[in-house]
Design a protein around this nucleic acid. Structure first.
Length: 261
DNA sequence: CGTATCCTGACC
DNA sequence: GGTCAGGATACG
């Protein structure tokens, strides 16, 4: 499920469910969650109140009034499910956050790759991340500078969260298709004009949360996914078949006819 | 740089 | 049974 637009939506849902509420109980339902958090850390959260729910890239931060932070990353398949403490647990619930008002926020994840960690005051919960797509300081020339020392093809580099936070495998392919740039084009070789169109395409395809402040985009066409998963089907621009290749272990979909290096 | 790894489920 | 999966990281 989750790239930036889906995580943005999830963070909103969590915010509506949890903001201002006080934790009554946190339960881990799958041992994979123990990779980043200990039961004592979780028990110590009881009684804390959620002061804010933020998204940064694909990361979610539940900021507590006392300055601690709960960090959640959905990885490939995580999502929130909101319910009440006496509801049946959703299938594949991996952790639950229960609040004193009876709200239950469940982390559901069929693959159990999601991570949850607790950070004390002064302990930064986030890894090194590039700018948000919506950051006005992100410009074609700043992007060019960020790519200057990168050797390989552009598509895998776009997945590096230190370049632009929140770009994932689907929308990387989509943005390259929209800007007619080959996924195999050299990252450091792209000139500012082409990066301007790539950046515009990324902001467009990543949805409202990725747009520059104050800019609207009217139509959310159903053709938002133009290439991903469409190997062999006709390109929506030139009708030639879409190709699938593997780069850095991930699928890339593109049109070898109208996307050029 | 590429590859393996963490997990489970869907699909061929 | 094998392959693939919208992510990230640890390795060689």
């Amino acid at each position: 499920m989750p790239e930036l637009p889906e995580v943005e939506r999830a963070a909103r849902i969590a915010r509506r469910a949890a903001l201002g509420k006080t934790l009554a109980r946190i339960t881990l339902l799958h041992p994979s969650l123990l990779r980043r958090v200990t039961p004592p850390q979780l028990h110590a959260l009881v009684g804390a109140t959620v002061a804010g729910v933020l998204r940064r890239g694909k990361h979610q931060l539940l900021e507590l009034e006392d300055g601690r932070t709960i960090h959640v990353h959905f990885r490939m398949a995580g999502d929130w499910h909101i319910g009440r403490v006496d509801d049946d647990l959703p299938r594949q619930a991996r952790a639950t956050l229960e609040f004193t008002d009876g709200t239950r926020v469940s982390l559901v994840d069929p693959r159990a790759l999601s991570t949850l960690s607790v950070h004390e005051v002064g302990d930064s919960p986030l890894p090194e991340l590039g700018p948000e797509p919506s950051d006005p300081a992100l410009t074609p020339s700043s992007l060019r500078a960020a790519l200057a020392r990168r050797n390989g093809p552009i598509k895998p580099v776009l997945l590096d969260q230190r370049i632009i936070a929140g770009v994932g495998n689907i929308y990387a392919s989509e943005a390259l298709w929209r800007s007619r740039i080959s996924p195999r084009a050299s990252a450091s070789g792209l000139r500012t004009a082409r990066l301007a169109s790539l950046l515009a395409a990324l902001r467009d395809v990543l949805g409202p949360a990725a747009r520059l402040p104050g800019r609207y985009k009217a139509a959310r066409d159903s053709a938002r996914i133009a290439v991903y998963g469409r190997a062999g089907k006709p390109c929506r621009r030139c009708s030639r078949p879409i190709s699938r290749i593997v780069q850095a272990g991930r699928s890339t979909f593109f049109c070898s006819s109208c996307q050029r290096s």
